[in-house]
Structures are given as structure tokens and as C-alpha cells.
């Protein structure tokens, strides 16, 4: 696991998100009202909507395209929808956000 510094938590709008370009594709970083940060692949399992542009509340992000609700802890769509999105570990130290990336399988 490689930990990458992304910058200050303040660069991610509260109750919203940003994304980072990585060799593994776009990863959304979402910040809730408690300043918890979640990282998930930036593609809704429904039609690929950019989750970084969705509404964030608690442990949920609402996809901006068709309002699918994704549980950010489990990376799963909430009923009645089905689907999942890969989650990534995040650490916050001194207001700095760190993203954990596994080495890509060869």
C-alpha cells in the first residue's frame, strides 16, 4: 500500500467532493458534515456518473446523474438499487488528506 498526500481537507468542499486522477482512474474524495473523508472510484455503478459531483450527507453520496444513493462505507448502492463501487482507504493527519493505493495487479 502506497500512501499519497492529496492536500488540505479544506480543498474538498464540505458535503461535497473533488476527484483525483490516478493511474487507476479517477477517484472521488467526499467530505461529510463530520469532516470524515471517503474515497471511492469516481463512477456510479449505474451509468458511470461522477460521484465527486454528488450531494454528500452522513455516509451517503447521491449520484448527480440519476440520484442513486451509494453507501460510502460499504461502497454499495442502497436499495432498491444494486451495484457496488470500489472504496479506498483514507487517512487524515494534521488536516492533510492521505489516500491509500494498492500496487496495481500486474
Amino acid at each position: 500500500m502506497e500512501w499519497l498526500a492529496l492536500g488540505s481537507i479544506e480543498e474538498i468542499p464540505a458535503l461535497g467532493g473533488r476527484y483525483v486522477e490516478t493511474p487507476q482512474g479517477q477517484i472521488a474524495l467526499l467530505r461529510n458534515e463530520k469532516d470524515e473523508i471517503f474515497a471511492v472510484r469516481n463512477r456510479c455503478p449505474h451509468r458511470g456518473g461522477p460521484l465527486s459531483e454528488g450531494f454528500v450527507s452522513g455516509h451517503t453520496v447521491f449520484c448527480p446523474l440519476h440520484n442513486w444513493q451509494i453507501d460510502l462505507e460499504k461502497g454499495e448502492a442502497m436499495a432498491p438499487d444494486h451495484g457496488c463501487v470500489k472504496t479506498f482507504p483514507v487517512r487524515i493527519e494534521d488536516q492533510q488528506v492521505w489516500l491509500g493505493l494498492e500496487e496495481e495487479a500486474p
Binding site: 499519497l4 492536500g7 473533488r18 476527484y19 483525483v20 486522477e21 490516478t22 493511474p23 474524495l29 493505493l101
Partner: peptide
């Protein structure tokens, strides 16, 4: 409008 990504992480 946060047009650009927060970071670009090179390969």
C-alpha cells in the same frame, strides 16, 4: 467551480 482535479497522480 472546481474545474480541475484535486491532484494528478502520475504513474
Amino acid at each position: 467551480i472546481h474545474a480541475a482535479p484535486l491532484r494528478r497522480i502520475p504513474a
